[in-house]
Every structure is written in C-alpha cells, then in structure tokens.
C-alpha cells in the first residue's frame, strides 16, 4: 500500500516537473498562493500529470475539490485504497 510520505515524495516530483523547478518542496500546507506559476492552466497540467504518474483518473466532481497539495494527497490516497 502506498503510504502518505511516499505519495508526497512522488507528488513532489510531479510538481517539480510541471513547474520546472528541481528545488521545489511541497508539503501539506502548500497552496496555489505559495507557487507563483500555479495558475488555471498549470493546474490542469498538474492534474493530468498526477493522473499520468499515479495511473489514476479523477472524476469531474473530484476536480472541483482539488485546491491545494493536501487535497491532491487525500484524493490520491482514497483512490489508491479504493
């Protein structure tokens, strides 16, 4: 089973790829306000990249609740458990 720290580690890689910033560190408290390039377009890139890297698909209703890093992690965890 994927643990929360593992999800954070892999998700951090996704964020680094999407924002092209190898030094980026995201944690439970990270929100769009903390990452200047996190706009509506890169938000979709984040979602699609997360789906691609974790092999999951978010439902339309789930997308609306994805606002910050902890939302991503909670949803990935729920999907991995389901």
């Amino acid at each position: 089973m994927t643990t929360e720290p593992e999800i954070y580690a892999r998700l951090n890689e996704v964020f680094r790829e999407v924002f092209d910033d190898p030094a980026l560190e995201v944690g439970p408290g990270t929100t769009a306000a903390d990452i200047p390039d996190w706009d509506s377009q890169s938000h979709i890139a984040l979602i699609v990249a997360t789906e691609m890297r974790f092999g999951i698909r978010f439902r339309t209703a789930e997308l609306e609740s994805l606002k910050n890093v902890s939302d991503f992690v909670a949803l990935i965890q729920a999907k991995a458990a389901g």
Partner: peptide, 14 residues
C-alpha cells in the same frame, strides 16, 4: 469530456 467541462480543452494536455 472531463477536460472539456473543466477547461474547454478539446485536446488533452497529454
């Protein structure tokens, strides 16, 4: 349709 409803993208970023 998910990308369409979400962001009016006809072609997925993928």
């Amino acid at each position: 349709p998910v990308r369409w409803h979400q962001a009016k993208q006809l072609v997925s970023p993928m």
